[in-house]
Simulated assay, not measured.
Amino acid sequence: MTPSDSMPAPLDAEYFRTRLLDWFDHHGRSQLPWQQERTPYRVWVSEIMLQQTQVATVIDYFQRFMARFPDVESLAAAELDEVLHLWTGLGYYARARNLHRAARCVVEAYGGHFPVENVEALSALPGIGRSTAGAIIAQATGQRAPILDGNVKRVLSRLHGVGGWPGRPAVERRLWQLAEHYTPHWRCADFTQAMMDMGATLCTRRRPACLLCPFVDDCVAHRAGEETRYPESKPKKTTPLRHTLMLMLIDEEGRVLLEQRPASGLWGGLWGLPQFDDETQLRDWLDSHAPGSRFGERRQPFVHAFTHFRLEITPLTAHLSRGSAGVAEGQHWYDPLQPASLGLAAPVKALLDAQTTLL
């Protein structure tokens, strides 16, 4: 049985829109930084930052980003290192790399003007999918463009009792049908924001505030007392645990050697500590790159979680006996007391911050 076979009919579209927008007018968010001076560029940056990240976390990052890159031209002209530096701590760094690539595409292919005439053209840019493109168009231009981000999936799944994981094609198709049904041709920016606000502030993943919801009497999940059943989670797989050694090679001035990671892959383009599979490999690297260095302490391992695996990191220190070793291309002596503007992987930043307290 497909989701559309078992689901009740959608609510009357006009009824849904009226109730939702009335709720939004009284309780919705309208003072967020990216809601002021709305342009396709500002809305785009905010939408990318908000992927997988809470609004409260994004606000400060967005404001710093706008202060440094007020328009798409300045972002396109920047070095990736600076973009990644401003993204440090926000996570999911592929977003920052795609943001930079897309900015250059907009400048080179569209003369600095975002192709907001249709979803297809906008979603062809790096890092922009169908829902993000719809949100940018609706928020920045007021044109009609349905969205289906995580918050909206949760609202629609619960309201209509749509079972199954939204990543399944049949479930996703059903949710897009509902999003299309309800999206109006008027007040499109407010409607889009209202849908996101509903999921973020009322129809939350845990402990939804059902009694404050304008659809409390219409919601299939609430009537059944099964709010947290929807949407169903992705089928779980065992999360593998990987291991790595991170070397903190420290010179007499307290500087730490960093290496830039390859543009693709784990922490792509960010600066990090030299990594090794085992201690023998690490010692061989030291003999080759920093002969005469003194091997230091082996610090407490810790685990950093990614989407598909967990990484156990064991930091080890070594000290140069005198001076600093020469640096090759893609290496940098980093002074924790006078840090350079480099994009750092979160666990590397934590280790460098901890090193500062020891100096």
Rank of each mutant, 00 (worst) to 15 (best):
P315V: 04
P315A: 04
V327N: 03
P274E: 07
G326L: 12
L337M: 13
A318E: 11
H289V: 03
H289A: 06
A325C: 05
P315Q: 11
F295D: 03
Q281C: 09
A328W: 10
A305P: 00
D278S: 01
L337H: 11
A328L: 15
S321V: 09
G296N: 01
L282Q: 15
F309L: 08
R298F: 08
R322G: 06
L320Q: 13
D284E: 12
D284A: 10
G330S: 10
E297Y: 01
G292K: 03
F276K: 06
S293P: 00
R294F: 05
P315G: 09
W333V: 09
H319V: 07
F295P: 06
A290F: 02
S321Y: 06
L282K: 05
Y334W: 12
R294Q: 12
E312C: 10
Q300C: 02
H308G: 13
D335M: 09
V327D: 00
F276P: 02
D284W: 04
G296I: 02
D278V: 02
H332I: 15
P301M: 10
H308S: 09
D277F: 03
G326A: 11
S321W: 07
G296Q: 03
D278I: 01
A290T: 02
V303F: 12
A325R: 09
Q331V: 06
D278M: 01
G326M: 11
D278P: 03
R299F: 03
F306Y: 15
R283T: 08
L337F: 07
L311A: 13
R294N: 04
L286T: 00
W285V: 00
G323H: 06
E312L: 08
L320F: 11
A318F: 05
Q331Y: 13
V327F: 00
E329G: 13
Q275I: 02
H289L: 02
S293W: 04
P301S: 12
G292M: 09
E312G: 05
G323M: 12
E329W: 02
A328I: 00
P301L: 12
P315C: 05
S321F: 02
G323F: 07
D278K: 00
P315D: 14
E312M: 13
T317D: 10
R294C: 13
D335P: 08
E279K: 05
H289S: 13
A305L: 06
E279W: 01
H304Y: 06
A318W: 00
A318V: 01
S324G: 04
R310D: 13
P291M: 14
D284R: 09
Q281A: 12
E312D: 09
V327L: 00
P301F: 05
